[in-house]
């Protein structure tokens, strides 16, 4: 690990100012991803700004009837929260399907959105990786790509976003609230928050240098049967090969977001219109522009089967 200086943020605005004026500074919250990457010298900040002392630990109802989740709320506390379990069970289920008990106790809401890919070539500093070292090439294309993206890929990168939480939040139309260095605030729909890799896979979100996440807001509850179904290589404590976050209403309409298939949680509203027509019709639209490799083509069939499973499960539950 490279040496760094360390300070505790006094406020979100102060933290944003420090980070905006120093491109080698990083915020640290739970640290469960950043420290891992610092040990491997994939991340090499020279200054860490500890945001653990900031008062973003609340989960509170919004005036519109939704829920505001502070950026520092730990994954464990979010999944266990009474309102989340009752009104947004999709989110609780997604959180509980990710990581381990120890990690969820530290990992934060804001940090979860910002976690980096688990592409093995991103982690292997002996291999070219456009995300780690822009312009060096992509080792996953033509390499072992079983875990990689099939949608929204580019010639520069086929990495996936690893979060389960973000997939559920995408289906729930969550909005990310931030503060910039100049003190201004903005709300970013999760639809727009993560970027596709394109020619700049090292730029993963629309956040500006120094901009800090303060909360994630959920819309008022939408009811329905909420299911998070995740397929992985182990029964527990593994990243998704494919996951489906589904909200299915009694009339068969609903929302679908898919994880493990792209650089961001994948949702196509036109595909949701096909939901009452079944899994095949929905998957056909969802996967229209898929560009799988020979090794991860199985994810296409897996998406359709997972959709089939959640539609059946929803019918079963509502009957």
């Amino acid at each position: 690990m490279k040496a760094f200086t360390f300070e505790r943020a006094a406020s979100a605005e102060a933290a944003a100012q420090i980070a905006a004026s120093n491109p080698d500074a990083k915020f640290i919250a739970g640290g469960t991803n950043l420290l891992d990457l610092m040990k491997l010298e994939i991340e090499t900040p020279t200054h860490l700004i500890d945001v653990n002392g900031l008062e973003f630990n609340e989960i509170e109802p919004t005036a519109e009837g939704g829920l505001r989740i502070g950026a520092m709320v730990r994954n464990t506390d979010l999944a266990a929260h009474e309102i989340v379990r009752r009104d947004y069970p999709l989110l609780a289920r997604a959180l509980l399907s990710g990581a381990s008990g120890q990690l969820r106790n530290r990992a934060t809401t804001g940090g979860n959105l910002l976690q980096r890919t688990r592409c093995p070539y991103f982690y292997d500093t002996n291999q070219p990786c456009n995300k780690r070292q822009p312009g060096s090439g992509c080792s996953a294309i033509g390499g072992f790509s079983r875990q990689h993206a099939v949608l929204g890929v580019s010639d520069a990168c086929i990495a996936t976003h690893p979060s389960d939480m973000a997939v559920a939040m995408r289906a729930l139309d969550a909005v990310v609230e931030t503060v910039k260095a100049d003190g201004s605030r903005r709300a970013i729909s999760l639809t727009d928050f993560h970027r596709l890799p394109g020619d700049t896979p090292h730029i993963e979100t629309v956040l500006e240098q120094g901009e800090i996440i303060t909360a994630v807001c959920l819309q008022p509850p939408i009811g329905g049967t909420q299911i998070y179904r995740k397929v992985r290589d182990r029964a527990s404590y593994a990243f998704a090969l494919v996951s489906v976050a589904a909200v299915v209403q009694p009339d068969g309409t609903g929302r679908i977001a898919v994880g493990g298939v792209a650089h961001k949680p994948w949702r196509i509203e036109d595909a949701e219109a096909e939901l009452p027509n079944g899994a095949r019709a929905t998957a056909a639209v969802l996967l229209t522009d898929a560009r799988p490799t020979d090794q991860n083509r199985f994810k296409l069939a897996l998406v359709e089967r997972l959709l089939s499973a959640v539609i059946a499960q929803a019918k079963d539950k509502s009957s």
Partner: peptide, 24 residues
């Protein structure tokens, strides 16, 4: 943070002590 051998209890919660800095 993958094996759990370093698990300790901090302020009542189990954590991976390898993935948190002493200064934090």
């Amino acid at each position: 943070g993958q094996c759990g051998a370093c698990t300790v209890i901090v302020d009542g919660r189990r954590v991976n002590s390898c993935l948190t800095l002493a200064v934090m």
